[in-house]
Design a binder for these strands. Structure first.
Lengths: 230, 230
DNA sequence: GTCTATAGTGGGATAGAC
DNA sequence: GTCTATCCCACTATAGAC
């Protein structure tokens, strides 16, 4: 969900209001984790935060807007984790796997209820959609992370592919997120297996792109991506 | 959305009940088309059908279950179109492209409407999800269609891949549906471009799977699919 | 600008009588 | 199988305290 997040909140807010806002967010996240999204009521959130229902709505104009807070938290944690990974790992596979693993680990506590409000992000016209204009900053930030995965690594790619690769890796991340949302296995074991097996495969495929036999396919893929982009 | 549908209803139902059921479905489809999914209420459906709210719930245990009626309509049209295509085309690429093109063409009139309730189907716990247990019969039926694409074609595949291929093609179909839902271009032009370019690429890749150099990758892909399946 | 209290409305879903 | 009555809760509205 990292990349579904909106951009960081503006800086200027009164300390008092900020405190109340944080209390509401904290209460909401606790309740979401405890009872899931649907069975968490705005009344419950307000009560747990020690504010009135009206006040909760003063800060978050709908229950869905509280979801933004969740996005922001996961994104922040992922960004921090990514810094460690990228400072540590030098191989392409290591960096990619590190990033994706970190995301799965960070998002895990929220898995159960994440599915419940996933639909907010899935609605094509929603600003929470990963492909929306509103999400562009977050999407660009996430894509930049994957560009770093490439820049700091040992990977050599066919040049035509190199330019498209960060976006393709971001798409892969979206695929993992999608899989994760639907993954009902304990501790999202299947998603972890997916990442563990897909990363070496992608690594292998990427390294093959400079073979003569594969060049034609690479050109096709790049052509497809470019033809299909809005 | 074809493949999100449930299987045809069981045969045995009282004529009385069946009539009521049909009235509710007809009213629901009218209202969905007129005002969209969200702004159609169960009260409105019940009233338009001339039954009580409670009675509507007797037949459809949730609003989402009413959407199945829409799925069934599209699915029926696609199945019929598929028969023509599969009787006519003999190449793998021709059969695959025919099936996907037919789906895009059939679904086109519903594009706007589909976007509105797509989020409901995207929810993992929803019975409308293509991966739900409720959708299994429809999913199996759709997969069988893609198995036919292979069976009647000239394509030779690496044996290990052959067994997994129908399901992979179904996944590809889901990818096209996903892309289609988000496609805001006029007449879903981008989706058509996607299909037109992806099919030859898939065809080329499939034919490469028997090359020695590619065998390792094929095994990896098959291993990945098997490790990751529920 | 922040917050409370209270009184609504609308609509999804259910219980239980008939 | 059908209804009526009811619950629950997201969400709105508003009047006013600090």
């Amino acid at each position: 969900m990292t990349t579904l997040s909106t951009v960081p909140e503006p800086a200027s807010r009164s300390p008092k209001g900020e405190q109340t806002r944080q209390a509401i967010v904290a209460a909401a996240l606790d309740l979401f984790r405890e009872r899931g999204y649907d069975r968490t009521t705005m009344r419950g959130v307000a009560e747990a935060a020690g504010v009135s229902l009206g006040n909760a709505y003063y800060y978050f104009s709908s229950k869905e807007h509280l979801v933004q807070a969740f996005y922001d938290r996961v994104q922040e944690e992922h960004r921090a984790a990514a810094e460690d990974v990228l400072a540590r790992e030098t191989t392409f596979a290591g960096r990619l796997q590190g990033l994706l693993d970190a995301w799965v680990r960070i998002a895990q506590p929220y898995h159960e209820f994440a599915g419940k409000f996933f639909k907010n992000a899935a609605e094509p016209t929603s600003p929470l959609s990963p492909f929306s204009e509103d999400s562009r900053p977050a999407r660009d930030a996430s894509t930049a992370l994957f560009r770093e995965v490439l820049d700091g690594s040992d990977l050599k790619l066919a040049p035509a592919l190199r330019a498209e690769m960060p976006e393709l890796l971001w798409l892969m991340h979206m695929g993992v997120v999608l899989f994760w949302v639907y993954d009902g296995s304990p501790d999202q074991r299947r998603t972890r297996a997916l990442v563990a097996q897909a990363v070496p495969l992608v690594d292998k495929l990427a390294r093959m792109t400079r073979l003569p036999l594969v060049r034609g396919v690479v050109d096709d893929v790049v052509g497809l991506v470019r033809a299909v982009r809005p």
